[in-house]
Structure formats: C-alpha cells, structure tokens
Design a protein around this nucleic acid. Structure first.
Lengths: 226, 226
DNA sequence: AAGTGTAGGATTGTCGACAATTCCCGAGGT
DNA sequence: ACCTCGGGAATTGTCGACAATCCTACACTT
C-alpha cells in the first residue's frame, strides 16, 4: 500500500490545498498515457490497475471518469475503458484547438505582463536547447511541453490553462507513440525562439503569425511520419 | 428506482451508443446547475442527491468527478463538493475562453460548409426572435445557448465543441443567477443576426469583429447587473 | 461445413457497510 | 467575557461483495 498523499510543502505555510485521491490517481494516469505506459487503444483493467496503484476500484473509477470527460479515455459500457486513439484527422483537431487556446493566451500576454512571459519562456527555451544538444528526446519533449504550459499559465486565464493541459497531454501522447521517428529538431527550437522574440518586441500580429506557423509545422512533422 | 437508460432511437438501426450511468447523471447535474436547481456555492450532499436521482453513491461520485474536471464543481477533501461560484473576474475569463473557442470555430466554418452553418444558425436565431417577442426568458436563453452550440458544432471540431459546452453551461449559470435583472434584449437578437449575415457574406474579418463585439457586450451586460 | 444456440469465464456496474476526517458546540479554565 | 480543549454528530472516503452484462469457445442442428 504505497502512500499517495505526498505533501510537497517543505516549511512554507501553504493554503494547504490537499488533493483528493481521485485527482492524484487521475494525474498518474495522465502521466502513464503521456509516456506510453498505457498505449493508445489499450484497455484499462480495473482490478489490475487498482492493485498497481495501491487503491481500491472506487477511487480509480472516479479518476477514470475524469479522463473520460477530458477525452483521453473512451468508455464502452459493460465492456471497459480504452485509451483514445488519435488518427490523422484528430491530430489536426488537436492542433486546431491548440492554436485557438494558445493564440488567445498570446493575446492576453500582449495586454498583460510581457516581461514575465519572456522570462518564463526563455528559461523553458533554454532547456529545449540543452536537450537538443544532448539529443535527449524525452527531455526535449518535456521542455517543449513546459514551454507551452507556461505560455498559457502566464496568460492568467484559468480556463485556457485547463483546456491547454488536456491538449498538451494528447500532443505528448502522439509524440510518444511516434517516438521512433521523432527527433529533436533545430527548426523546432528556432520556432520557439521566434515566439519569445515576438513577445519581447510586442508585435502581436507577428506573434500570432509565428504561432500559427509553429502549429502548422508541428502537424506536418507528425502526419508525415505516420 | 427510476429508469435512467432512455433509448432515443425510434426505428433506425443506430450503432446503439448506450451511455454509462455516470454520463447520464453528469448531464442531469449540469442541467440542474444551469437552471438554478443547484445554486452557485451550494454543497452537494451525496446521500440526498443519490436518493433523489435513484442511484447509489458510487455512480454519483463518478459523475461528480466529471464535473470537477470540467470546473463546474469545486472539491474540498473531507468537506464536500460545491457548485463553483463565478466572480466578475471569472465571468470575464469565461468570455475570453468563449471568444477563443468560438472564434476558432468561425474560422473553420469560413473554410468549410458555410451554407450549412447559415441554415442551422438561422433556425436558432428564429427561435430567439420568437422568445423575445413572447418575452420568455428561459426560451430566450435556450435559443441563445442553442445558437452558440450549433456554431461550434458545425465547425466540425470535436474538441472545440466539448470545450464550448462547458463554457456555455457556465454562461448559463450566470444568466440563471441573474435571472432577476436579465431580460431578452433586442440588441442581443440583432447581434446574432449580424453574425449569421457575416457568415453568409463570407467575410471572415467582419465575422470575427462582430463576434468579439458580441462577447464584449455580453460581459458588459452581465457585470453591470451584478 | 456453416450457422445457431448455449454454457463458461471474465469484466464491469452497483450497492451497502465500515473507517477516517472534519465541523459544531458546550464545558472548563484564565 | 474570552479563549482553549475535548465529545459527539455528520459527512466524506474507502473497501469488499454481489448482480448484470459481454466475449469466447464448444457442442449441436440443419
């Protein structure tokens, strides 16, 4: 029975936001789906998973319903829950939605704290550079994801942030599935740098253009590989 | 023990998409939140709700976790689940997200089946006109919601549609809470007509401008009333 | 041989009961 | 009068067991 309630506050007096078991389990499942521990299309056996996580079926089922709502899991009554599979059309849909969400985040940033955004994104971009230099695929994907997470986070919109989280998990799922063919690319690194530059310059029009180009390129890379 | 499994297929041989209990219960809860049956800030007692719905606590908890993921419910461990309250800042956030999602949907429509969109939206608009003439607040809100639902539906993007659904429920929740002061307005009707016109004309720039204006106006109406 | 019908096994869906935590409220002390 | 400290009630969180449903495989009929 492994402890799932991990307190990450060392000494500070945090507003003690203790999280429910379902939330923690849901996060674990997301991680597993992202990193390929639960491949697309695979069925999630309840007893097996529950035992592996050290919880009962109750909390596990609650967590799974969250992922169903997110669209990461597909429910077939009396048959089971399966990890969603993404065909080419769905991949395009993910990036369409990402463009909408992250584009809106960009607009908010331009009307908000640009300096903070540049700071946060630059540090994420540096990680990408380092990961690319080391040819570390996982670190590269982590940095990529972190970049876009921060992009929506500094926008200050809770809803955009939440929507983006799901979309980023789906994106990561594709990347993991195509791990064989996907490699850190200098183009990708450059595209992210251009985004930060546009924010620093304060040119919204340029920023949105570059974001759209970035998404288009990403779809291109993914669909051509499959 | 009321029957929750309702089959809506008359005679056609549909791929019989039977829905899980959690999904049905989640939908019921959404309706209740929208229509004020569960006011913002109120606590959801599990035993009471379960009895009222004719299900056990298990399925109910699964459904509630879905709404937590959506952001409609707020979970405080060992204390209970509460309907989210929306302050003025959050209302702005909802409309920011709506503008992002529906704006993207508009772009897709312009590159897709404009005729279908005009057809669907015109019929929804007609309902608004009728409801406004009858001064029926509920029918008016229904028509408004239907209009925007169809807007994202005809875009063809599953993800935009799902995101919009949650946002529309939140919007509706505000409207219900402010039922006292909110009334069908001729301006609102006109704004929707202008959107349909812009789609028919095929002018994307105009459409996005009008959509943004529509959202701004809506926020104005809501925040000035509170 | 092809198709139909039927047991078997396994998995999901549901339920009621137990354990853990929190909040309310009154007694006691300063 | 105010603060502190338990006792008790109510609610949530968790668990194991039962019932319903579905897939598979094998025998049977035509």
């Amino acid at each position: 029975m492994v402890s799932l309630t991990e307190d990450t506050t060392p000494g500070g007096i945090a507003p003690l936001a203790r999280r429910s078991t379902a939330e923690i389990v849901a996060e674990r499942l997301r991680e597993a789906i992202m990193h390929g521990g639960l491949p697309p299309g695979s069925q999630l056996g309840e007893i097996d998973l529950a035992n592996r996580l050290g919880v009962s079926r109750g909390p596990l089922r609650e967590a799974m319903q969250r992922l169903v709502q997110e669209g990461l899991l597909r429910s077939e009554p009396h048959r089971g829950l399966f990890v969603s599979t993404l065909d080419e059309e769905e991949i395009r849909d993910v990036y369409t939605a990402r463009l909408a969400v992250e584009g809106a985040a960009c607009q908010l940033i331009m009307r908000g704290d640009r300096a903070l955004a540049v700071s946060e994104l630059t540090s994420a971009h540096q990680r990408m550079v380092a990961a690319a230099a080391a040819d570390d695929r996982i670190a590269f994907s982590d940095a990529d994801q972190l970049f876009h997470q921060r992009l929506v986070a500094v926008s200050g919109s809770q809803r955009l942030e939440r929507m983006a989280q799901t979309l980023l998990v789906e994106t990561r799922m594709c990347l993991t599935a195509l791990q064989e063919t996907y490699r850190p690319s200098g183009d990708t690194v450059e595209e992210h740098r251009l985004l930060v530059d546009a924010i620093e310059q304060g040119d919204e029009r340029l920023l949105l253009e570059r974001l759209e180009a970035h998404m288009t390129e990403a779809v291109e890379r993914l669909t051509s590989a499959s």
